[in-house]
Amino acid sequence: MEVSDIFRGLELAKKSFKRDHVYLLNHLVNNIGSIVFGYINVRIWLAVLGDSKEGIEAVTYLMVNQAGLWLVLFIPYGCYLPQKVYDGTIAYEMLRPYGLLYNSFFELAGHILYNFLFRSIPIFLFSVLVMGVSLPKLAQILPYLITLTNGIVIAFFINYFIGLWSLKFISINGVQMLYYFTGTLFSGAWIHLKYYPQFFQDIIMLLPFAYTTYVPTAVYQGQFSLARALISQWLWIIVLFTIAYSLTIRLTKNMAIQGG
């Protein structure tokens, strides 16, 4: 990949950022909804934990997750690919002078940046100012942002696989709810993993989902060592990238043979 390729990718990202920006007002309404969901969770946990140290930690854990939800879990289902299959615009994607993986990544990147600025930051600020979420120690900020970015990349690959799957089998929203099921249960977005039974925790740490949500937030709270987080996240990224890359090549080759 050359430098000019990256610039072209950034153009793609800019376009999807702008497309989102048109609906800013709608997204602000959505943020309030998101805060209400966060509030419900917080009240549940406070009701069982009380105003203890554990309770306050839970509030921070939940709301930091809630702010990050739009970066690692509620991202465009299947990286826009199922939608493109449905309305037929996937045909244009195939004509582009760059690969599907490349296009999907940068299109999502613009969307993520937008969500970070206009969803995550407002929700986070609200949580800090109104709901008593504690700020991270200064030394944890950079580690958090790095592990969060890794988490986003992992989440991208998970959705990219769903996209490829829908391309292959022409299935539009087939596994959407299954994706949310696994995300809800395995990412730790609504429950700190320490409240799961031990064997379940062990299984979850062998799946990629926890590395998108639980791990970055645990780093934020200083409960997870940065080195361990980085090594495991990068391992996941390498594995997922290798699979995604070879699957993309196989799939696009097949499509070319069929004559598009």
Binding site: M177, L178, Y180, W190
Partner: peptide
């Protein structure tokens, strides 16, 4: 999808059950 809709929401209940 029917299965997904079953499980998708059931996850919410599982979490409250665990709590």
């Amino acid at each position: 999808n029917i299965l997904g809709n079953f499980l998708g929401l059931f996850a919410d209940f599982l979490i409250i059950a665990l709590i």
